[in-house]
Write a protein that binds this DNA or RNA. Structure first.
Length: 565
RNA sequence: UGGGGCGUAGCCAAGCGGUAAGGCAGCGGUUUUUGGUACCGCCAUUCGCAGGUUCGAUCCCUGCCGCCCCAGCCA
């Protein structure tokens, strides 16, 4: 499926229109390429996050739309920071998003031998040299943003000497940091990336794939474009910060006998409010225990989002909505929440769950009686059918659904007010029971037997409909409510980013209750707890102790109204 | 003060010389056995600013202003 670009144009549909797709369309129309070949090139030094999802959806999406293919290529050129755990996680996460790289799982390390041979080619052509300067000396001689650099005293070594030194670098004769191979370009260039950039450095480190076969490793700049060329990549899509590297990318391709000439195009990376997509910060959050791991549901990692219950389709919808452009932007997290709700509303079954239970006794309901009632599984999807729920004299409702001193706009339960218990009966609150501390611990209500199912034959209306559970079969579960990981919409914008961590990003509810089939794991997921939000079972669930994560809450115009005062 | 980019509504984002799409958020309303969903309406006389070219400029030109990236042997 993901091979042999045929050029079948599948992009005529509603697939997003952006400058990248426009370029590809033009290249196909002109006959420059039959179909695009792209690649997603992660460095395995951390977990993939929602920012990577933008790149993944672009690269794989464009390949699908235009009948091309997309490779998964690990940019594993720095063994000092890359790990097998990350390699495995990355493959898992890309698959979770629903993309398939077919036979095209590649690694920059697959090309180490070829890359090395090409480095010798540059040396032979007088385009690269071995520099003995220390990192510090190189830095000082690189010049500044406004002044050119100083040429290395080793810049004009003979081809023979360079070749010999480079061979000995590979042979392991020199310790880390003592020599590098540099391209000989232009120390006076206004573009600092062209001031004789480093191509190879000595790293006596074991590589996850090549083991101890090498002690010299190519830099990103040297490896990336050549890897693209080897794989026949047509459009090498990356983020804006690589823009000033493009002249170097092209210089290398122009000076090497590569089999193809890929082109690099840049797009703006994703930024989201209330979170952070910096690998450095994410790594620190995990390392210092601010979260429970890379897959903590509060993390913007794909693993975290997955665990929180975000469907891959919702993530893809979000990526499509935000578009693809070259302007730096900060996307409102509310936009992501919208995509999640939009999808879950159509797909999640409805169940009743009570987060903070308040006991209700229906005084005129016969003790010991139990009635079965029909409840719809998903009003947005008739195919989802219905289920049977049980009603009894003692019930649980949400504490938030009762107010002792209620404002007139409060449509829920208060003494003297009638409400509907969803799919059951109209009930009227007749009184409450308080404990010694004055807390309301129980409500007394009466029900109208004529309203069974939730409709009144006399046509009288109630303003509020509430979710509830029968005390005879409600099952206790743990519920974890998540909020933004960072309280500030722009974490770190003023001061230490770790000071912006939201202390209330996780709230654990141990006394929550749900319908029995759900607790038993017999119901499909995801699930909407009616009137509350979307939830999914967490992997921490143990037999007899289910744990549910709130993926996202429902829109709550009552809460909004309250906040306005 | 070098090089490379980017500025369209609170936030994303179309627009490619013919008179400002769409989405999110917000506001108002209709429907509703979820204060959910769905639906309807409102929300840029103006495109960073100033000039110029043109019958006509968000779009072309010039000059400013603002923001982002680059001085790793990270990617």
């Amino acid at each position: 499926m993901n091979d042999t670009p045929t050029g079948t144009d599948a992009a005529a549909d509603g697939a997003g229109q952006d400058f990248i797709r426009e370029i590809i369309r033009t290249d196909i129309a002109s006959g420059k390429h039959a179909a695009p070949v792209t690649r997603f090139p992660p460095e395995p030094n951390g977990y993939l996050h929602i920012g990577h999802a933008k790149s993944i959806c672009l690269n794989f999406g464009v390949a699908e739309e235009f009948g091309g293919r997309c490779h998964l290529r690990f940019d594993d050129t720095n063994p000092t920071r890359e790990e097998q755990e990350f390699i495995d996680a990355i493959e898992r996460d890309v698959r979770w998003l629903g993309f398939d790289w077919g036979d095209h799982l590649h690694h920059a390390s697959d090309y180490f031998e070829q890359l090395y041979a090409w480095a010798e080619h540059l040396i032979r052509n007088g385009k690269a040299y071995v520099d003995d300067q220390s990192a510090e000396e190189m830095r000082q001689n690189r010049g500044t943003l406004t002044e050119g650099g100083t040429e290395s005293p080793h810049r004009s070594r003979s081809v023979e000497e360079n070749l010999d030194l480079f061979h000995r670098m590979r042979a392991g004769e020199f310790p880390n940091g003592t020599r590098v191979l540099r391209a000989k370009i232009d120390m006076a260039s206004g573009n600092i990336n062209l001031r004789d950039p480093t191509l190879y450095r000595i790293l006596h480190a074991s590589h996850p794939r090549t083991g101890d076969a090498w002690c010299v490793y190519p830099t990103y700049d040297y490896a990336h474009g050549q890897s693209d060329a080897i794989e026949g990549i047509t459009h090498s899509l990356c983020t804006l910060e690589f823009e000033s590297h493009r002249p170097l990318y092209d210089w290398l391709l122009d000076n090497l006998p590569v089999p193809s000439k890929p082109r690099q195009y840049e797009f703006a990376r994703l930024n989201l409010t209330h979170t952070v997509l910096s690998k450095r910060v994410l790594t620190t959050l995990v390392r210092d225990g601010h979260v429970t791991g890379w897959d903590d549901p509060r993390m913007p990692t794909l693993a975290g989002l997955q665990r929180r219950g975000v469907p891959a389709a919702a993530l893809k919808d979000f990526i499509k909505r935000i578009g693809m452009a070259r302007a730096n932007s900060l996307v409102d997290m509310a936009m992501f929440d919208f995509s999640i709700r939009d999808l879950l509303n159509k797909t999640a079954i409805r169940r009743m769950g009570v987060l903070r239970p308040l006991k209700v006794v229906i005084e005129n309901y016969p003790e010991g009686q139990i009635e079965e009632l029909e409840a719809i599984n998903n009003p947005e999807d008739p195919e989802a059918g219905s289920r049977t729920i049980r009603f009894s004299r003692e019930l649980w409702i949400e504490q938030d659904d009762f107010m002792e001193d209620a404002p007139k706009k409060f449509y829920r339960l208060t003494v003297g007010q009638e409400v509907r218990l969803r799919y059951a009966y109209y009930v009227t609150c007749t009184g409450m029971v308080k404990d010694d501390a004055g807390n309301v611990v129980e409500l007394r209500c009466t029900y109208d037997p004529a309203t069974k199912g939730g409709d009144s034959p006399d046509g009288r209306k109630v303003r509020g409909t509430m979710h509830w559970l029968s005390a005879v079969d409600a099952v206790p579960v743990e519920v974890r409510l998540y909020d933004h990981l960072f309280a500030s919409p722009t974490p770190g914008s003023e001061g230490d980013i770790f000071d912006d961590i939201n202390p209330n990003s996780l709230e654990v509810l141990t006394g929550a209750l749900v319908e029995p089939a759900l607790a038993a794991g017999n119901d499909p997921e995801p699930v909407q707890f009616e009137r509350l939000g979307y939830f999914c079972r967490d992997k921490d669930s143990a037999p007899g102790r289910p744990v549910f994560n709130r993926t996202v809450g429902l829109r709550d115009s009552w809460a909004k109204q309250q906040k306005k005062g």
